[in-house]
């Protein structure tokens, strides 16, 4: 089966006054139709930039993107507007991503009008149907974003992304700005529409429990690179990279009877500007050796479907088993 999306050695470098900022640096992955790829990591690891580059909201500076087997790395405007119908995005902040001067109706109808898909009664019908799908009461059709709470606003954002019936959606922290009970409503909605419309997601989040819940595979990013890639279950049961381990152990544990087994991680993320050729996590890694400081690890298949980018992956994993 051809993967729906196939990304190889993707790069997005920005020129900044201090040099070159490596926001996304050689990222490769595949997503099959109907799957969800969770992308996790700390602020500044390049996870949002990755989503935007895949959608051509930012142009890549290297590597290839294939959508249903077709190379879409470089496309002209006509092709791009065709792609936009198939590939959409749900933004993080439903307060900033909606036009405050447009009603729900106008926001949901705009993509249909631009794509010249329908008008008149048919347009109205489609908008109302979409409001039903995302759980917005039809009576709200003429309200403005400021009249609505965060959960409803995010439902508009989801409706806007869905109205052209895309096949692929980048969800960029879609629930981070919401309260926990509303967050759960929106996550359930995203799961329902994925099943009903056979959607494929890239789900960018900093919330690891959300990522585990919603993802088929999870990709852990650190300073523009993938440090670990595995199925959600495998990653949580058997993390190998020291960064993934520390990241998972930092999640506050709900079980009050379990001792906290936090693996402390020193310091903060270093600069992605002109990174040296070495393991980017080495300066914070408690297992780092001299070799980590002068050679760059590559992402290797550690066990079937489980990829790790660490020079000492096997050794560290053995140590853990012995203890």
């Amino acid at each position: 089966m051809t993967p729906l999306l196939e990304v190889e050695r993707l790069e997005k470098f920005f020129d900044v006054s201090a040099g070159t900022l490596h926001a996304v640096d050689g990222v490769s992955f595949k997503i099959n139709q109907g799957e969800t790829l969770g992308v996790v990591g700390e602020s500044g690891c390049g996870k949002s930039t990755l989503g935007r580059v895949v959608l051509h909201l930012l142009e890549s500076t290297g590597g290839t993107i294939k959508f249903k087997g077709e190379d879409i790395t470089h496309v002209n405007r006509t092709k791009l507007s065709e792609l936009r119908r198939k590939m959409q995005i749900i933004f993080q902040d439903p307060f900033a991503s909606l036009n405050p001067r447009m009603t729900i109706f106008q926001t949901l109808a705009e993509p249909l009008v631009i794509a010249d898909i329908c008008k008149g009664a048919e347009l109205e019908e489609k908008v109302y149907k979409m409001m039903d799908t995302v759980g917005l009461a039809r009576r709200l059709v003429n309200t403005y974003p400021h009249e609505l709470d965060g959960g409803r606003r995010q439902r508009i954002g989801i409706g806007r992304a869905l109205i052209l019936e895309p096949e692929f959606i980048v969800c960029d922290e879609p629930v981070s700005a919401l309260d926990v009970s509303i967050q759960a409503q929106v996550i359930n909605l995203l799961l329902d529409i994925q099943r009903d419309m056979k959607l494929t997601y890239i789900f960018v989040t900093h919330d690891l429990s959300v990522a585990k819940f919603i993802s088929t595979n999870i990709m852990v990013m650190y300073l523009g690179q993938v440090v670990e890639f595995a199925s959600a279950k495998e990653l949580f049961d058997h993390p190998v990279h020291p960064y993934s381990k520390a990241l998972l152990s930092a999640i506050p544990n709900l079980d009050i009877d379990q001792e906290s087994r936090r693996i402390p991680i020193q310091g903060e993320v270093t600069s992605p500007i002109n990174p040296k050729r070495r393991c980017r996590f080495a300066t914070r890694c408690r297992y780092a050796k001299e070799t980590c400081m002068d050679s760059e690890p590559v992402l290797k298949e550690y066990s079937p479907g489980h990829f790790v980018s660490c020079l000492y992956a096997e050794e560290l994993d053995q140590d853990k088993k012995r203890v």
Partner: peptide, 23 residues
């Protein structure tokens, strides 16, 4: 109870969350 049910980590075996309806 609804707050706990809304958390992805609360019921590891369920494939849906149990949110509180409404606002």
């Amino acid at each position: 109870k609804g707050l706990f049910g809304s958390l992805p980590g609360a019921f590891p075996d369920s494939d849906r969350l149990k949110p509180i309806k409404g606002l």
